Amino acid sequence: MSTQSIHDTAIVVDGLIIAKWGRDLFEDMRRGGITAANCTVSVWEDFQATVDNIVMVNGLLRDNADLVRPVRSTRDIVAAKEEGRTGILLGFQNAHAYEDQIGYVEIFKQLGVGIVQLCYNTQNLVGTGCYERDGGLSGFGREIVAEMNRVGVMCDLSHVGSKTSEEVILESKKPVCYSHCLPSGLKEHPRNKSDEELRFIAEHGGFIGVTMFTPFLKNGVNSTIDDYCEAIEYVMDIAGEDSVGIGTDFTQGQDAQFFEWLTHDKGYARRLTRFGEIINPKGIRTIGDFPNLTEALMRRGMSERVTRKVMGENWVRVLRDVWGE
C-alpha cells in the first residue's frame, strides 16, 4: 500500500489548531485528509466572549456542513472519517472562561468543549502557566480538575507550568495531555518539556501531542518536516508508541495583531514572549500538506502500524478514555 493510500485510510487527528476560522481552512483540512481536530475557541476570553465564539463557530459548521461536522464523542470522529468530512472538536487554551464557577465546566461540555488547557502562559484561578513562577495547582483548581474528570473534559497542560502540571497529573483520575509541545532535549525553551516531564506524564497514563511550531523546533524557521519527525521520534523514545500523537498548533490565516494578542498577558498587558517570523516547517506549510507527514514518518522507518497510531489512533483511544464514549 502506498503512503498516500495509508494516509487516505488512516484516522488523522490534529490535537491543536488555532488557525483563522473559515471555509478556506475547512477546505485545506479536507485536502490534508484531517479526520478530526481540536480547534481553539478560547484563550483570554471570559465566559460571555467564549460563548459568543462558540455561537460563531456553530454557524460556520452549519454553513460548511459539506466539509465539517461537530465532534462530541469518538463515535463522531469515526463517523467523520466515514462521511469524508473533518470533525471539529472545540477546545480552550485557558480555563479563564470558567471564571470562578465550577458549574461552567459542565455547561461548556454540553456546548461541545472536550479539551481544556488549564492555564495559558500565566497565572489564573486554577494554577500557573509556563512563563511565571509556578505556585502549583490551587484548591479551586483541584475542584475544577475533579469536575472535568466527572463530566469528561480532558485536561491539557501544554502552556502550563511544571509544578502545576505535575500536580494536575497526580490529581486527575483520567488521562491528561500535553496537546502541543516539543522536547527541551532538542531545544531549550520555556514552552518545551524536559525528558523528565515527558516521562512523568506518560508513566501516569497521559498523552503527548507533538507540535511543529517552528519557534520551538531545533532549527527555528529553517526547520523541515524531518526536524518535526525527529521531535516525534524523540518523544516516542521516552513515552512509547501508544502515548504520542500530533498537535500541530497551526495558526494559518492569522495576522500580526492576533499574535500580539496571544503574546501579551490577558491579551493586552505585559509582553510574555516574541515569536519572530511564523512559518511552518518546509514540507508541511499548511494543513493541506498533511499527507507529507505520513510519507515522511514512513520514509524514516516508522512501520505502518505505528504510523497509524501516531497520526490519530492514539488520540482516539485516549479521548475515549476521558470522554467515556
Rank of each mutant, 00 (worst) to 15 (best):
R133H: 12
Y98H: 10
H189F: 11
G161W: 11
N149E: 13
G135T: 03
N121V: 01
L111N: 10
E188M: 12
G185W: 04
E166Q: 15
Q117D: 05
K193S: 05
E167D: 13
L125M: 12
T128F: 08
V113R: 04
S162I: 14
E197S: 13
K187L: 12
S194R: 05
E106L: 12
K193V: 06
Q101T: 13
R199Y: 06
G127E: 00
L111G: 10
A95V: 11
T164A: 11
E196R: 14
E132V: 15
N121I: 04
C181L: 00
N149T: 07
S138W: 06
V168M: 00
Q123Y: 13
Q101H: 15
H96V: 14
S194V: 06
R142G: 12
G103C: 05
S138C: 06
R133Y: 11
D195V: 14
P183V: 01
L137Q: 03
E166S: 13
L186I: 10
C119H: 12
V145H: 01
F92A: 00
F92H: 07
N94Y: 02
S179N: 11
H180D: 08
H159S: 14
E197L: 13
Y131V: 05
V168F: 01
G112T: 12
G185N: 12
V145S: 03
R142H: 07
E188Y: 12
C155N: 08
L111M: 15
G185R: 09
T128V: 07
Y98G: 06
T164K: 07
Y98I: 06
M154I: 04
R142K: 14
S165T: 11
T122W: 02
N149W: 08
L157S: 10
E197M: 15
A146K: 10
V145P: 01
N94A: 05
G139F: 03
I102P: 09
G139Y: 03
E171H: 09
T128G: 01
L137W: 07
N124G: 09
H159D: 07
Q93K: 08
Y178D: 09
V105Q: 04
V116C: 09
H189E: 15
E143A: 14
I169L: 06
Y178S: 06
Y178K: 00
H159G: 10
